[in-house]
Amino acid sequence: MDMADILNSKLFLGQEFLTWLWYLCEEQGSVVLEDGREVTLFMDELLVLGPAQGQDGNRVTVRGKEASLAEAKEGLKTGKLVEKMRLGMILGTDEFFFTLTASDLAVSSLKTPPSPPGESNQDMDGQRLERIYLIDQVVSVIDELFGFFLGARLEDENGGELWQGVIAWANPQEPAQKAPAAD
């Protein structure tokens, strides 16, 4: 089995992770990181749902701050999972916005807090270092959240309490179902 096959066989983890982030935004909003810092997550202007790995179906795209998530929630009920989302994140006093993609957990369109303007070359170097630091903060938070998600998701054959909570949230009228097997 080559690397592309391995990555494709684990695609469902990215979709489930992003779906869990949506659940987290709506149900909890914030998480305390291992180092004690609190991070607040909220939905921004884009949510794309698609068929779960190995299934056929259409995509549902919701755009705009005022867009209703009702259609997206209906997609969840039919087995769709999040493929791409735009998130806002507050970490300390800093506010970030970024797009996260399920297929590779890539961060794109990252908007960091503004840096004060620099006038000298030394100020410009400082701004670059500050930007690198801020990018690292976002990636580190996503890594930690993904680690937390994986630990809870793989807790037992039903996906643990975390995944059972997501299923109950996505299907409020139906009893929680068994999660897909994590190969």
Rank of each mutant, 00 (worst) to 15 (best):
M89V: 12
M89R: 05
M89G: 11
M89P: 14
I90H: 01
I90A: 03
I90C: 05
I90V: 15
L91V: 13
L91A: 13
L91W: 02
L91N: 11
L91S: 14
G92V: 00
G92T: 06
G92I: 01
G92L: 03
T93P: 03
T93I: 12
T93F: 13
T93Q: 14
D94H: 02
E95F: 09
E95S: 13
E95G: 07
E95Y: 05
F96V: 01
F96C: 01
F97V: 08
F97E: 15
F97C: 14
F97Q: 11
F98V: 01
T99C: 08
T99V: 10
L100K: 00
L100E: 01
T101H: 12
A102Q: 02
A102P: 14
A102R: 03
A102D: 04
A102E: 00
A102H: 06
S103Y: 00
S103C: 06
S103F: 00
S103E: 04
S103L: 00
D104G: 10
D104W: 03
D104E: 13
L105I: 12
L105F: 10
A106V: 02
A106I: 05
A106M: 13
A106N: 13
V107A: 07
V107C: 09
V107T: 03
V107N: 02
V107Y: 04
S108P: 04
S108R: 12
S109N: 15
S109M: 08
S109A: 13
S109T: 05
S109P: 09
K111A: 14
K111S: 11
P113H: 11
P113E: 15
P113S: 09
P114Y: 03
P114A: 04
S115C: 10
S115V: 06
S115K: 02
S115N: 12
P116C: 08
P116M: 07
P116K: 14
P116W: 08
P116E: 15
P117S: 07
P117N: 05
G118D: 03
G118I: 04
G118T: 05
G118S: 06
G118V: 00
G118M: 03
S120H: 00
S120Q: 02
S120N: 05
S120D: 06
S120M: 04
N121V: 08
N121I: 10
N121K: 12
N121H: 11
N121G: 10
Q122K: 15
Q122S: 11
D123S: 06
D123L: 05
D123M: 08
M124Y: 12
M124K: 15
D125V: 08
D125C: 03
D125I: 05
D125M: 07
G126L: 04
G126K: 02
G126V: 07
Q127V: 13
Q127G: 04
R128P: 00
R128V: 12
R128D: 09
R128T: 10
R128G: 04
L129A: 15
L129K: 14
E130I: 05
E130K: 05
R131P: 02
R131D: 10
I132Y: 14
I132L: 15
I132K: 14
I132P: 05
